[in-house]
């Protein structure tokens, strides 16, 4: 099949010029794209020193991973990843960043020696993991491209204990029971975490002034109004209600 050169040129932006479009496996391309974004962003997380940038890179990495999930046919898990990981978890992270974002702590430099050691050890770990991943021939088989069945409803039914994807999938293995109990356990776990986190993070009434208060009293309170200093010494409540009150 021949293609109009204009079309081919349009696609040149993808860096795959001169390729017969019909031969392109778009799925592979998208995979490479998302995988590259995810891995690069992950490495950027390691490389960055600024906490907020780390958070941004992490979001990018996680979102790209969600894309990978979509590509793998796990739409529900991908959406879940976006919703909870990228949305919830990272909003929490940003909270933490803001609350602790005093200038000295926003960027704590990692030590060079640490980086070198971590690099060596990480390389060894990566090598081990990649070797392990590639060592099984079945995993290296190219994808069969069977259209993945819609997963949301079976997943939801599985979570309430009914497996509607029963035995007929080709070569599908695994127990044929639902996940009602794990689901409930996770629910209770989340509740416990909620309560525990609220308890841990609550402002304690203490007679002895906190170190942060001592720090704040040492430094001039005018620093709060300093335009360039970011939220120094501000607590969550005052941030939310606005410092101008």
């Amino acid at each position: 099949m021949t293609l109009p050169s204009s079309v081919v040129g349009d696609l040149g932006v993808l860096g795959v010029a001169f390729l017969p479009l019909a031969a392109i496996n778009w799925h592979s391309v998208m995979f490479l794209l998302f995988a590259a974004v995810a891995c690069l962003a992950a490495v950027a997380v390691v490389a960055a020193d600024n906490v907020v940038r780390m958070a941004l890179y992490l979001v990018v990495s996680l979102a790209a991973t969600a894309g990978l999930f979509f590509l793998a046919g796990a739409e529900f898990v991908g959406a879940m990843q976006l919703m909870i990981y990228v949305g919830g978890t990272l909003v929490l992270l940003v909270f933490g960043v803001m609350l602790t974002a005093q200038a000295p702590f926003v960027a704590i430099k990692s030590e060079g020696g640490d980086r070198v050691v971590a690099g060596i050890v990480g390389a060894a770990l990566l090598a081990a993991l990649v070797l392990a991943g590639l060592s099984v021939p079945a995993w290296r088989q190219p994808a069969s491209m069977h259209a993945p069945p819609p997963a949301a409803t079976p997943l939801g039914m599985a979570l309430v204990g009914v497996r509607v994807d029963a035995a007929e999938g080709p070569g599908v293995i695994g127990p044929r029971v639902g996940y009602l109990l794990p689901f409930e356990i996770v629910s209770v776990h989340l509740l416990v975490v909620l309560v525990g986190a609220a308890y841990l993070a609550r402002a304690k009434r203490r007679k002895v002034p906190r170190p942060i208060d001592q720090v704040a009293s040492v430094e001039p309170p005018a620093s709060v109004a300093a335009h360039a200093s970011i939220g120094r010494g501000e607590r969550a409540g005052s941030v939310l209600t606005g410092g101008s009150a």
Partner: peptide, 15 residues
């Protein structure tokens, strides 16, 4: 098949 979920999740990224 998870369109509603997807839309809500992505919309949450706007923040």
């Amino acid at each position: 098949n998870v369109a509603v979920f997807f839309v809500v999740a992505v919309l949450g990224l706007e923040v």
